[in-house]
Design a protein around this nucleic acid. Structure first.
Lengths: 359, 359
DNA sequence: TTGAAAGCGATACCAC
DNA sequence: GTGGTATCGCTTTCAA
């Protein structure tokens, strides 16, 4: 017992075959679970395998079969509850379908995303799911297709890519929020997002390279136009990509002479920061400031007041992306499919009427 | 351009070698970045490689070198902010050290954990980090060691395993909390944890198979004994492993005749549920109920009142585990090391004096 | 410095 | 049914 081989085992099919007194091919058949073998031989091989403590080498198997049983996932930040929930959806589906997941963080940086994908392809993953940092910069994603591997896009589409894509109806959601706010009398509505521009100022939609973010701003501005509100672009704030940056942006806005009466947060991490800053400044929600956030994060329902949010089907987003990918892996062919999941506005108590002093 | 090979590339070193007019071995040397090659030949090979759009096959490389450049991570639930933050710490360190991460969810189920580890070993990951579901059931973890791969334990130790382990000082943390509560006059202090027992009732410490949880309860009960409080075991509630279960347990306790005046939540997911139930029942924190939660989750600081928590160095826990593992991978040998990271009590406003009606 | 050839551990094709 | 053997793409002696 004591002398169990401390050295890496490396018991191979050949060893098992020898022990069982059969050929390597036969042993491989039972160990690999393919081909036809007599019951008697099968038992003998199995016995030999467990006696030797045989461990299959997936690497070798992958090399001959061409399938690694692994899918690669590249997201912006696994620490963000949005992505960790989506990843949970992906891993659940993957496991059920017999796949493992290699997870990479891009930090929303295209260079890192590129490197991650290069590695994933080198590792011969069977397929890849990515949440592209920039919809315009997708040459590396086309490479995936060229390598013959299926690709699925999560939460963000890329117009130039004809691949399976799963997104939420961000535009309608944003429209809905903005209409709600306008209906309550708000005119000075700020939109805060993590996406950044070179000069950290929003000029036009063309500045926004992250698809889901652009669709949201598009919906928001559309609803504004619809209500004949002009120059609302000035109220769009970009660059909230860390809690410090968000804090700075929000503080700045809220302390200026003409401060917004309502803020839309593009994700729950931003929403949380807005909530903190507002409280720090002694602003009362919703009397002094209205707040709506994307993503029904756990905390949004326990604050005082609880926060009105856009509930996104995050887990399902991951599930759907993984499902589409697995279907491709199982032979599905044809045009890239586009799945749009519905969001739902959950009205809580962070939205109130605009102060009458306004416009 | 149009006729770029749609078929899986499969440009191999042999192809590059041919194109460059050198031997396979030479081409492999420059492509693999090892051995000595003349500058001239190196350039020729590189040119040929990019002309052919050569993509290395890590699988084949791994098979000969024996290293896959991958580490496996098995956690209870990536969706839990505790683990997603720890995983972020792991992936950051791994990436810097040149490793990828294969992520598996065990769902705190030993069978799933076993299966995940089996797969990971089959895939020949270089090392594994796991947060064992049960400290007693670790035969499969010993297997990892037997396979010659380093193993590191995250957040939970296993006495029978002499491997690198990174944990927080849960026992002291729990002691601190309980002393604080007792000092404020509390006598009916409930402890709610996700860990379950066969009959869903806590009898003794031996029931608790998850190391970190046991250390916490141990600290808690120790502080109780210290203050001559007896039968505090009756106030320990197990089985809060889903929001529904937690809700049921907490509702039950809080609606009983003799309800606790303070609750300790073993993680932030439980803490959130306690908060929700308390509010639902119209209980005011901290007047009607005091609450302390483990894990300084984002929401704990924005509630009214904000919640007193044990701040755990979660990201650092992941970082440290990955660092220890990488060191092993780089040749470090010897006894398993044990790293204990300090926690810190963040006093906010969810703890108050016990109602005078008590004992 | 470069080349030829032997593995690594499985699968798969083709006879028997 | 079972066995022999080429093969996958790369690394790694060992000679030249």
């Amino acid at each position: 017992m004591e002398q169990s081989p401390a050295r890496s085992s490396s018991v191979t099919v050949a060893d098992v075959a020898r022990e069982a007194g059969v050929s390597k091919a036969t042993a491989a058949r039972v160990l690999g679970g393919y081909g036809i073998v007599s019951a008697k031989v099968r038992e003998a091989v199995k016995a030999a395998a467990s006696a030797l403590d045989y461990r299959p080498n997936e690497l070798a198997r992958s090399m001959t079969t061409g399938r690694s049983g692994t899918i690669g996932v590249v997201v912006g930040d696994i620490e963000n509850p949005f992505f960790s929930l989506a990843v949970r959806g992906i891993t659940d589906v993957a496991r059920l379908a017999g796949f493992n997941v290699i997870l990479s963080n891009s930090g929303e940086d295209v260079a890192a995303e590129k490197a991650a994908i290069r590695t994933l392809v080198a590792k011969r993953v069977d397929g890849i799911i990515v949440s592209p940092a920039k919809e315009g910069d997708v040459e590396h994603l086309k490479d995936i297709e060229r390598s013959g591997r299926p690709l699925a896009l999560l939460d963000r589409s890329a117009p130039s890519l004809n691949v399976d894509t799963v997104i939420a109806d961000d535009m309608q959601a944003a429209e809905g929020i903005t209409r709600l706010l306008i209906g309550r009398g708000h005119r000075r509505i700020a939109y805060v997002t993590a996406c950044d521009t070179p000069d950290h100022v929003f000029h036009s939609l063309d500045d926004i390279y992250t698809d889901s973010v652009r669709r949201r701003i598009e919906g928001h501005l559309g609803a504004c136009r619809e209500a004949s509100l002009t120059s609302m672009e000035e109220w769009v704030r970009v660059g909230a990509n860390s809690s410090e940056a968000t804090r700075r942006i929000v503080l700045n806005m809220l302390q200026s002479a003409e401060r917004p009466s309502a803020i839309i947060a593009s994700d729950s991490v931003i929403g949380l920061e807005v909530f903190k800053v507002a409280r720090e400044l002694g602003l009362t929600l919703p009397d002094d400031l209205s707040l709506v956030s994307f993503h029904d994060a756990d905390w949004t329902s326990v604050t005082s007041p609880p926060v009105t949010v856009v509930q996104q089907p995050v887990y399902q987003l991951g599930e759907a992306a993984a499902t589409l990918l697995v279907e491709r892996l199982n032979g599905e062919v044809g045009e890239g499919r586009r799945v749009v999941l519905q969001t739902r506005l959950i009205e809580r108590a962070s939205v109130g009427a605009a102060p009458s002093s306004g416009s």
